[in-house]
Simulated scan of single mutants.
Amino acid sequence: MVAGETSGDLLAGLLLDGFKARWPALASAGIGGPHMAKRGFDAWWPSDKLAVRGYVEVLRHYREIVGIRDQLKVRLLEQRPDIFIGVDAPDFNLDLEAALKAQGIRTVHFVSPSVWAWRADRVEKIRRSVDHVLCIFPFEPALLASHGIAATYVGHPLANVIPMQPDRAAARRKLGLRDADTVVAILPGSRKSEVQYLAKRFFEAAALVKRVQPAIKFIVPAVPLLKHMIERLAGEAGVQADLQIVEGQSHTVLAACDVTLIASGTATLEAALFKRPMVIAYNMNWLSWQIMRRKKLQPWVGLPNILCEDFVVPELLQDAATPAALAAGVLQWVDAKSAAPDKIAAVEQRFTLLHAQLQRDTAQLATDAIQKILEG
Results as ranks from 00 to 15, higher is better:
M1V: 14
G8V: 04
L10H: 12
A12T: 01
G13C: 07
L16P: 12
R22P: 10
W23V: 11
A25I: 06
L26S: 04
A27P: 10
G33P: 11
P34N: 07
P34G: 08
K38G: 03
R39L: 13
P46A: 13
S47P: 06
K49H: 12
K49W: 07
L50N: 12
R63C: 13
I65Q: 12
I68H: 00
Q71T: 11
V74H: 09
L76K: 00
L77F: 04
P81A: 06
D82K: 15
A89H: 05
D91C: 00
N93A: 06
L94S: 01
D95R: 15
E97R: 05
L100N: 01
Q103C: 04
S112K: 08
S112E: 15
V115M: 05
I126K: 01
H132D: 06
P138Y: 02
P138C: 02
F139D: 01
E140G: 05
A142W: 01
S146H: 00
G148N: 01
I149Q: 05
T152D: 11
T152R: 12
P157R: 14
A159F: 09
R168T: 13
A170D: 13
A170R: 07
R172E: 02
G176S: 07
L177K: 14
D181I: 06
V184I: 14
G189W: 08
G189K: 06
Q196E: 15
L198K: 14
R201G: 05
E204F: 02
A207G: 04
V209T: 06
V209K: 11
K210H: 15
R211F: 01
I219T: 13
P221I: 05
K227I: 14
M229Q: 15
M229P: 11
A234P: 08
A234D: 05
G235K: 04
A237R: 08
G238W: 06
D242R: 13
E247N: 14
V253H: 08
V253R: 10
L254H: 03
L254R: 03
A255F: 11
T260K: 02
L261Y: 07
S264I: 09
G265D: 11
A267Q: 15
A272C: 11
A272P: 14
L273E: 03
Y282A: 11
N283D: 11
W286R: 07
L287F: 10
S288D: 07
W289F: 13
K295N: 05
Q298L: 11
V301L: 14
L303K: 04
I306T: 03
P314A: 13
T322D: 00
A324F: 01
A324W: 00
G329P: 03
V330M: 06
L331N: 03
Q332W: 00
W333L: 02
A336C: 06
A336N: 12
A346C: 04
Q349Y: 06
F351W: 01
F351G: 00
L353K: 14
L354T: 10
L354E: 12
Q357R: 13
L358Q: 10
L358G: 08
L358V: 09
Q359T: 09
I370V: 15
I370D: 04
I370P: 01
G376I: 02
